[in-house]
Each structure stands twice: as C-alpha cells, then as structure tokens.
Design a protein around this nucleic acid. Sequence first.
DNA 1: AAAATCAATGTAAGCGCTTACATGGCGATT
DNA 2: AATCGCCATGTAAGCGCTTACATTGATTTT
Lengths: 342, 342
Amino acid sequence: MTTDHNNMGRTPTLADVAGLAGVSTATVSRCLNSPDQVVERTRKKVEDAVLKLGYAPNFNARALAAKRTNTIGAIIPTMENAIFARGLQSFQEELGRSGVTLLVASSSYSTDLEEEQIRTLVSRGADGILLIGLHRDPKIYEFLKRQNVPVVVAWVFDPNAKVPTVGFDNFSAMKALADRVISMGHRRLSTITASPQGNDRASERLRGIYASMMEAGIPKTELSIVEAEYGIDEGGAALEQLLRQTVRPSVVMCGNDVLAVGAIAKAQELGLSVPNDISVTGFDDIEIAKISSPALTTVHVPHRRMGKEAAKLLINLVNAAKKQNSILIETSLVVRASLSSV
Amino acid sequence: MTTDHNNMGRTPTLADVAGLAGVSTATVSRCLNSPDQVVERTRKKVEDAVLKLGYAPNFNARALAAKRTNTIGAIIPTMENAIFARGLQSFQEELGRSGVTLLVASSSYSTDLEEEQIRTLVSRGADGILLIGLHRDPKIYEFLKRQNVPVVVAWVFDPNAKVPTVGFDNFSAMKALADRVISMGHRRLSTITASPQGNDRASERLRGIYASMMEAGIPKTELSIVEAEYGIDEGGAALEQLLRQTVRPSVVMCGNDVLAVGAIAKAQELGLSVPNDISVTGFDDIEIAKISSPALTTVHVPHRRMGKEAAKLLINLVNAAKKQNSILIETSLVVRASLSSV
DNA sequence: AAAATCAATGTAAGCGCTTACATGGCGATT
DNA sequence: AATCGCCATGTAAGCGCTTACATTGATTTT
C-alpha cells in the first residue's frame, strides 16, 4: 500500500480522493472545476471516490490557491427591516443566477460595527461588496480601493459619488410627498425618523421636507422631529412624544411604513381619528401599507428591482473591473386614506 | 535593500508587514493573535507597519493554517419572514458576545438548495451550523457527523432527535389553540398553512389540529386546508379560495400572523365581519398581531429567546464537543378579538 | 562565575488546494 | 515509418497564514 487513503479521524482531502481513485491531485481538481478537461472514464473513478469518502472541498484552501471566491458580501443595517430583507432576497437570487454566493452581515446601524464587518468581508475574500447608504469614513473607501474590492452602494442615488450607486433620490422622493402634504393645507408638520446621524437616507429625506416647507414659505420651526428606532411599538411611542408638545401637528410624516402603522395604531388608541384629527404618511409601500386602516399614504419604492439591479451592477464590476454608472430607481407617490386635507 | 516591502499592485501580506517592521512573520502573527506574547516596543513597530500598509489578514489563509474559523453558519428558509429575521438577530448578538461571526444563507424552503448550502457552509469551515426544522435527508446528518460539524436545530423541540433542538412543541402549541377554538363552539374549521411537505413545523401543527378535532369527536373532513406561501397578499388569496367552497368555515386558523392579517383584510374587503361572520387566528404573535383590527388571537412564540438559547447551545457544542440536551421554549395562547364564540 | 531558567523572537514545515509546465501516448500527416 | 500535434494526465511550486520547535540573550539560581 503506497498511498494512504483511509479516512481515520481526519476529514477527507483532495489527496485522499486522488489516492482512492488512483489519479493525481491535479486530475481530481480538474474534475471538480472543469470536468470537460477530463476523460469520461477517469471522471467516473474520481466521482466514485468523492462519494465514497464523503469528500467536500475545503473552500479556504481553494480560495487561497485560486485567489477568487465567487462570493459577494452585503452589509445591511438590520435584517429585521422588511425592506432590506426583501431587497437582499432578490439581490441574492440574481447573484445565484451567476453562481455567486452571498455573505450577509448586519451592522445594527453602527458605523463602527459596519467598518469591522467590511474588514471581515474583505478578509474573507469577498470579490465585491454591497453597502447601504453613502455616508461613511472616507478611509473605508480608500481601504476598499487599496484592497481592490469593488463596491456598490444601494438605497441612495448619487451619480457624483466615488462609487456606483443603485437607488432612488431620497431628497426628491420625500420632497414630493411633502409638497403633496403641504398642498393639502397642512402647516403644522411633524416627522418620526431614524436618527439622521450617519444615515444619509434619513438626512436626505429630512432635507426634502425642509425644502418643500421653504418653497411654501413655512418656517423651519413648524416641523417637530422625533427620532425612533425601527418597529411598530417604537412608532407608537414616538407619536405619544409628539402629542405631548403644546401644538398638535396636523400631519406626521414617518420614515417608513412600520413606524407609520405604529403611529396610526397609537393615535387610534388615544382616541384620535386618522386622518380627521391627524394625518399620517409612511415610506416604502410594503404590504402592510395597503391593509392598514386607514390605508397608508406612502412612497412606493421598488426594493426588489433595486436589489436585482445592484446585483447585476456588482457582478459587472467584479468581472469587467471597469467603471460602471449609477442606476436611478424611480419612486412614486401612493396617496391613500391616511392623508386628508386640513 | 534586502527585503521588499513596497506595495505595488499586490495587496499587502503578513510578510510585507514583517519586512516593514523588521521582524519575522511569526512575530507579526503573534501580534495579531496573542499580543501579550509580544513585547510592547515590537508590537508598536508592527502596528505601525500594519497601519502604513493598510494590511488586512487573509482569512482564508488563516483558516487553512489554524483549522478554525470562529464562524458559525445558519440556514433559514427565508429572510423575508420576520420571525426568522428576529430569531437570527438575537442568535447573532449572542454569537457576537463570544467573538463568533455568523454566516447566513437562505434556502427558500427548498430542501435541495438547503443541502447545497449546508455543503457550502461546511466547505467554508463553519465550526457549527444552525438549521430550522428536523426534516431532511438522513444522509445530510451523516455527512455533517462525518465532517465533524456540530448542528443545532431550532423552531422545533424533540428530545429524541439525533441532534439537539431548541424550540417549541408545534403539535401541542397548535393543539392548544384548536382546543380553545373548538371549545368556543366552532365545528366547521379551516386552515391556511405553508406546504407541510418537508416542513415539520407545518405538518406538526396540522397534526395538532386533527388531534384536537378527534378529541372533540369532529370528523377529519370538517377541516378545509389551503396551502399558501408567506405574505399578506397570499393570505388574502388563500381566504378567497376557502370561501369558494360550498360550506363557509366559521374559523380560519392560519400558519402565521402575516397570513392571518392578510385573511382578515380580505374578509373585510369582501364585506365579512371578523369575528362575527368568521373568526381568524394566527401564529407567532409578532407586533402586527396587536395592531391588527380586530386584534389577532395567536400563539406567542419567544423567537428572540429561542435564537439566544440556540446560540449558547451551539457555542457549547463547538467548544466542549460533548453532547448537549435539547431546550424547550414555552409558547402561550394569546386570545384577542379576532376569535369569538360561534 | 557557571549553570539553569525564561521570555522574546526566529526558522521552517505544513494547511488543502490550483495551475503553469512537463510528460507521455496516440492518431494524423507526410 | 518517421514526424508532428494534441489531448489527458502528472509534477510540483506556490497561495498567506499558524505554530512546534530552535535560538538568543537576559535574569536568576547555585
């Protein structure tokens, strides 16, 4: 017995397969990666050996040798937010079509954690990375460039950014909604938003509201702002906080549909009628917006399409390595019963 | 110039850092992994070199050499289902406390895809794996055992399974709900469920309903079953299908809260009153259950706790490598307005 | 003062794979 | 029949790290 191919204790390696099949490691490797280079009879022997040993290739060794992982990483703020989950789902589906695996990490909206996760993904040899929102330390972009890892940023659109973006114009989308709200006579405005710090989606949307107010000649002070985390209960709590202020706003514009639904529920619980006593708007247009009672006025965002486009873009970037243009995803206003004239 | 530590083109390696710092690669490695073994002055030199070069360790090389990844994998059916997202979130948080990274994949409820993902995770050197539900080809469990990768199964509880489980008793939980429904006079039952094929949560719950009916002397035929995917709209469509049948059921028991909310909305849209014309129940008790109108009768499942316990169990398994016992997570009935006596 | 001990660092052998290059065998070409 | 070319396979050099073991110099022990 010249070669040792028992599998005592150890998990089988490619060399074990080669031994059992009576071929070289190179041939086994070829069977796995480019089977057409190997003649039928040999391939069969190798496949039998693989099955018999229950062999599974060691990805780390492969990545080390081949310098390619066929893996793309994504970092989202949280998995609990349906829109990210949804966008990511189609992102993954599109990647799958190209035989690319997705690695997901969530940063809990912490820039430090995100930075750490980016380093982790790069360490793991991600061929490309999807990030949400542009706002982060420029050093990170430098690091990524130095490491030669292409990046796509989603959920925002900015053709002038240093990296390609796939998303919508948060400023304009929110401004359009605010324009509508104001055109319906609302003057005492309020918003429940995620903390705009380090979150360019949130800050852009806030800017959108202010811009609309300015055009209508409404002073900035007429907008009350409450920050809230993501969640139905959080939306309700934020609404209570808003109502504790002296002047009750006539409308509350929420950063997303989930907050909005929570605000509506809390308002009703407090004996207020929506939209008669107070109007409420959301953002995203997830299913819950339709079945809320009253149904939610919101901004429709095609998350699935965004995920898909981001995947295509990133794959192009990884394969072609040449610059790609940002892609604008159009949003639209969806006016439903939760918003009424004042 | 004896050592070469320019960074032209290539991404910097540990050897580059060693060159720049004027130490051996072993010392650099120690600085990174067990800094207390290195004297202050040397460490400083190395850290400077790391910063200057923008060095990031190659995870794959590290895993290959160290035979350990500090990574745990999880495969969930879909990220779009809030309960998995939520359970996974606390799973991840708990892992983080032990310095372990989480790798997530989603199988879209396909057993084939899941099998592939399991192989991928093993290939990547996951130190342990979290799976949802017990039902899968025994070969997979064999494979995992052979590869020496510990597994924990969540969302079900079965102390007799070959692998430790962390979850609740789907049969009993659903039976308790059905008992209550039947005790309130319902006889013409119906359910909207995920396909029970290859999904032991769904099939166990179905069994629970049947068991309750049997005890009450209600023939099996009194239960109409409609299968539906996850989603509000899907719940609505399933309800329509249910109503097309000759005898209208007095209650529809849904596999989860999302389906239930969809069913309620559709019923109301069709001019039926819930619960006067038809009662509806859910499962999971996510926030939406509370704010639904009418509020949803459902089964409360502590998903967060489940995720956390699963993480602890898996970490123990990875570190101690000795058998661990399954953990039972208790559920409870939450009766709200969507269920009334007949 | 020589010997023993110890902490800090260096040396070098892999980890399991891929792949450029070398080799050998066989049919086609002349 | 000698030559060429090509295809299937083998040989072996890394990929970037970790770590057992060896080495060094300083400190303590006798």
